[in-house]
């Protein structure tokens, strides 16, 4: 009997293995997003201070992570850390580190642009009633800018999830890597294994990212309505 291509997904433990691979990608993305956002908030706040040296350094940090493609960042850390600094980390840790630093860089810009969009008189008013700088951030600047930052942060999250597809390049056993193995192992019986496996992974990524995009757009629209009305 001819095999129907879709059965490749249900052969043996294929489905569990694919989802296991997805779990590894998700874990790396989750840790990197949480740590990166925290670090990014701190860096973003530092970038609004008036220290010129600090601003230049943080700006260079941001531009470096913006200009170098993520694939290249992964390779830089993957090859250079062990060779020149004798730090041997496994690929998953390298990936988490790179993603965290990248998210922190992007997040710092989101936080900075949110903070500077708060009207100047709000800051002056806060100072006039005698708030200290930390109080100013805590009670005036952050609450007023957080609504602006949320959609951008959600979009950044979807970008991180999509970028986990690059993990296979530094041989993390992510969902695509597992998919490739399954396709090769079943090559004899399933001529169009790639079609079904890659199609399935395509849909998996879509299922993860689509709700987040819809959510970000919903918040953006709500915010726009509130500002105009």
């Amino acid at each position: 009997m001819a095999h129907s291509g879709i059965n490749i997904l249900f052969e043996g433990r294929n489905l569990t293995r694919l989802l296991g691979g997805l779990w590894i990608s998700a874990k790396i993305a989750f840790i990197a997003i949480v740590l990166g956002i925290l670090l990014g908030i701190i860096l973003g706040m530092l970038r609004t201070l008036k220290n010129p040296l600090l601003r230049v350094i943080l700006r260079l940090y941001l531009e470096f992570f913006r200009i170098v493609p993520t694939v290249v960042l992964l390779f830089l850390f993957y090859y250079i850390l062990p060779q020149n600094f004798h730090i041997n980390l496994n690929a998953e840790v390298v990936a988490t580190l790179v993603f965290t630093l990248w998210v922190a860089a992007e997040m710092s810009d989101i936080v900075r642009s949110g903070l500077i969009s708060v009207p100047r008189h709000q800051v002056d008013a806060g100072k006039a009633i005698g708030l200290t700088t930390p109080q100013l951030y805590r009670y005036v600047l952050l609450p007023q800018s957080i609504q602006l930052m949320i959609p951008a942060t959600i979009n950044l999250t979807t970008r991180v999830i999509k970028t986990t597809s690059l993990l296979l390049l530094i041989s993390v056993m992510d969902v695509i890597n597992v998919g490739q193995q399954i396709i090769e192992a079943n090559n004899q019986h399933y001529q169009n294994g790639a079609f079904w496996i890659y199609g399935f992974i395509f849909i998996l990524y879509f299922i993860l990212c689509y709700p987040l995009s819809v959510w970000a757009r919903y918040i953006e629209r709500k915010e726009k309505l509130r500002n105009n009305g």
Binding site: S165, I176, N192, Y198, F206
Partner: peptide, 23 residues
């Protein structure tokens, strides 16, 4: 737009390069 924005380029390329020849 939704399909293209919510999936990674890498898997789009794999699909075009490896899966299309199978059909």
């Amino acid at each position: 737009i939704e399909l293209s924005r919510n999936t990674p380029l890498l898997i789009q390329l794999f699909f075009i390069y490896y899966a299309f020849p199978e059909i």
